[in-house]
Amino acid sequence: MSIDKIRDLKSAKVIPGDMEVGKYVYTLGLAGEKFFNGLKNGKILASTCKKCGITYLPPKAYCEECHGAIDEYSEVGKIGMVYSYTIQYVDGSGKKLDEGVIWALIKYEGVRGGIVHKLGEVDYDQLYIGMLVEPVFKKKAEREGKITDILYFRPIKP
């Protein structure tokens, strides 16, 4: 009996197990504290290496090119651009979603990196690469300093 034919777990003796640690806590770190505090205040912050002239989003505390320290942070422009997008119809376990979710990589001019987030207030047939978008934040009182403080990005109305 070949083991790859065992579909019914009752036909071979198995020991149940797990690989779970209870929980994790992740510190945000030097650049992360600045970035997520920025979100809480409704701002998207990037960091700039003066020596190399590179601006990073999300911000880094060091330059990946020269390894120098970075301590200059500034807000990215108001206008983001959809670099690519996709529509999710099935979740990670294979279950069909009631409604599709639009995911996009959003970039800013002159910035290395970008933000992956949802798109909202847009129909599927209106989507296109190059679409200009802006963030929609939660109400200030509800923000927690998390990436989900941004609800989604929406097209900028001309």
């Binding site: 992740y26 770190g29 030097l30 650049a31 505390a61 060091y62 390894h67």
Partner: peptide
């Protein structure tokens, strides 16, 4: 420590 794993590696490497 406050720093992320990447930031710690950077500090040591620097």
């Amino acid at each position: 420590l406050f720093e992320t794993p990447r930031e710690l590696a950077w500090e040591a490497a620097k």
